[in-house]
C-alpha cells in the first residue's frame, strides 16, 4: 500500500534571469515500510522533489501538484499550521551536511527535545529521558554528556547520528534522508547506512533515501527511482535497475560506478556532456543531448512512460515497439 502518492508534481524557482524548472511534472509513490532510493546527479531534482513534498523550499519556489496524498491526507489542501504538525511527527528528515544542519548555538539536548516538546507535549524532564533513550538507540556513547554538548564539539558522524535521532524522535511514518552520508568519510558512511537500515527494520517506517551514489542504494533499497533533468527516467525494483536497466541514462550511471574489485587499472567511464540547463530545459527527452542512442524524435517529443510490468517503468523512446533494439552496453 502506498504511504505517499504524488501526482504530477512541478516545482519552479523564480530567479533573476528566469524560471528554473527543477521538477517537471513527476508522479511517484512510496510504499509503506519500503526503502526507496532516489538517484540522480546534482541538479536532477531529487532533493527538490522531497523538499517540495515537505514544503520546505524558500518562498521564491512555486510548487504545484495534482495531489500529494500522505497516509490518506491530501497535503496540497493543508495550511501551514497543519503541515507543520506533520513535520517531525509524521515525516522526519535527515539532511546532507550535519555540520550545518544543526544549530551551532543550541545544545544537543535543546535541539533533540524540541520535536518531543512540540509534537508529543513532553515536559523538560520527560523529553530529556526520551532524548537519552534516542541517543542510545542511534549508538552514541555517553549520551548524558552529549546532551550538554554543542554541535561543534561532536564529530561529523556523531552529528549525523544526532540528526537521525532527532528525525526519528516522534516515530514518524516516513523518514526522508537527503544524501545523509555524502558529507561523511567512507567508514562513517557505512556505519550511518547500517544504522538507518537497523532503525528502519525496528520502526517499520518507510525510508526515502536521496543520493547520487548507486553504491549506497544497492545494498539497502528495495525500489529505486532514477531522476534526470527534473523528470523520472526509470523506476523499478532494485533488481530491475541493477540487472535489467532499460534507460540509457541508467546504463551510463551504472557504468560510471568505479570498480576496485577487478584489480586491473581502469579509467573511470563518465557520461559525456553536461546536465541540461533547467532555465531552458530541452523540449524532448532531457537526456537526448548526451544520449548515444538519440533519435530524431528524442529531441522534440518528451518520451512517454512505458510500463514493463511489476512496477518497472521507463521513460525512453527506445521502448517503442518500432524503435531499434539496442542492447545495454
Amino acid at each position: 500500500m502506498a504511504l505517499l502518492e504524488v501526482q504530477n508534481l512541478t516545482t519552479t524557482f523564480r530567479i533573476g534571469v528566469g524560471t528554473v524548472q527543477a521538477v517537471r511534472g513527476i508522479s511517484f509513490h512510496v510504499n509503506e515500510g519500503e526503502f526507496l532510493g532516489i538517484v540522480g546527479e546534482s541538479g536532477s531534482g531529487k532533493s527538490v522533489t522531497m523538499l517540495s513534498v515537505m514544503h520546505l523550499l524558500p518562498d521564491y519556489a512555486t510548487i504545484t501538484a495534482d495531489s500529494i496524498l500522505f497516509d490518506g491526507v491530501e497535503m496540497t489542501e493543508l495550511g501551514a499550521k497543519e503541515l507543520r504538525a506533520m513535520h517531525g511527527r509524521d515525516i522526519g528528515m535527515v539532511f546532507q551536511d550535519p555540520m550545518t544542519s544543526l544549530n551551532p548555538l543550541f545544545t544537543v539536548e535543546q535541539q533533540l527535545t524540541e520535536p518531543l516538546k512540540i509534537h508529543l507535549g513532553m515536559k523538560k524532564k520527560e523529553a530529556r529521558e526520551k532524548a537519552l533513550e534516542l541517543l542510545n538507540e542511534v549508538g552514541i556513547p555517553a549520551p548524558e554528556e552529549r546532551l550538554r554538548q554543542y554541535p561543534h564539539e561532536l564529530s561529523g558522524g556523531m552529528r549525523q547520528r544526532v540528526m537521525i535521532a532527532m528525525a526519528l524522535s516522534c516515530a514518524p511514518k516516513m523518514l526522508i534522508a537527503d544524501e545523509p552520508t555524502t558529507a561523511l568519510d567512507v567508514t562513517i558512511q557505512a556505519q550511518i547506512l547500517e544504522l538507518l537500515e537497523a532503525l528502519k527494520q525496528k520502526s517499520g517506517a518507510s525510508v526515502v533515501m536521496i543520493t547520487h551514489d548507486l553504491g549506497v542504494i544497492a545494498s539497502m533499497c528495495s525500489r529505486i527511482i532514477v531522476m534526470y533533468g527534473g523528470t523520472i527516467c526509470e523506476e523499478g525494483s532494485a533488481t530491475d535497475i541493477f540487472y535489467d536497466p532499460r534507460h540509457p541514462y541508467t546504463w551510463g550511471l551504472l557504468r560510471s560506478v568505479p570498480k576496485i574489485s577487478t584489480g586491473e587499472h581502469r579509467k573511470l567511464i563518465p557520461i559525456p556532456g553536461t546536465p541540461p540547463d533547467m532555465l531552458r530545459p530541452p523540449e524532448g527527452c532531457p537526456f537526448a543531448p548526451r544520449c548515444r542512442h538519440c533519435m530524431r524524435i528524442c529531441r522534440t517529443v518528451p518520451p512517454p512512460q512505458t510500463d514493463l510490468g511489476d512496477g518497472h517503468r521507463v521513460a525512453c523512446h527506445l521502448m517503442h515497439p518500432c524503435a531499434p533494439k539496442i542492447d545495454r552496453e
Partner: peptide, 23 residues
Amino acid sequence: DYVRTARAKGVSELMVVSKHALK
C-alpha cells in the same frame, strides 16, 4: 541549513525566527 532543520522538525515560524535564527 539549521533553519530548514528546525522547520522540518515542525517548529513554528515564530520560533524559527525568534529562537533559531535570531540568536
